[in-house]
Amino acid sequence: MLILGISLVLILIGLYAIITKRNMIKVAVGFALMEYAVNFLFAIIGFHKVPGMKIIPPILMEVKTTANVLSSYSDPVPQALVLTSIVIGLGVTAFMLSLALRIYNRIGSFDLDEIKRLKG
């Protein structure tokens, strides 16, 4: 529950930055924060807590009875998925920053209020 709470708070901080900040770089940082929070949550989902062991790798180690097969290793699927979504997040952040830089070169400002030309 603590993990869930922390990541939801991080997501909301990111959302706050995206909605209220007028600087494009800060918006991009907000997006990065949101993505990391979601990735964090997703990666943590796959972990089991087994008494006596600190960290369980996603590898099937020793199996004593059939009952503890599932709890003897971490679920590898979320880790694989998070790896994919980190790559996607990298692409998104890179593209957003390059777009911001392109706007800066054209207008000379990172401020979203100064580039409001589209109306209607």
Partner: peptide, 25 residues
Amino acid sequence: TEPEELEAGFKYMVMGEIASIMILL
């Protein structure tokens, strides 16, 4: 890459990515 188009692209990206992150969540 006119200023209007870049602005529209940025605006679109902000909205679209919020939706994408929510879907991931």
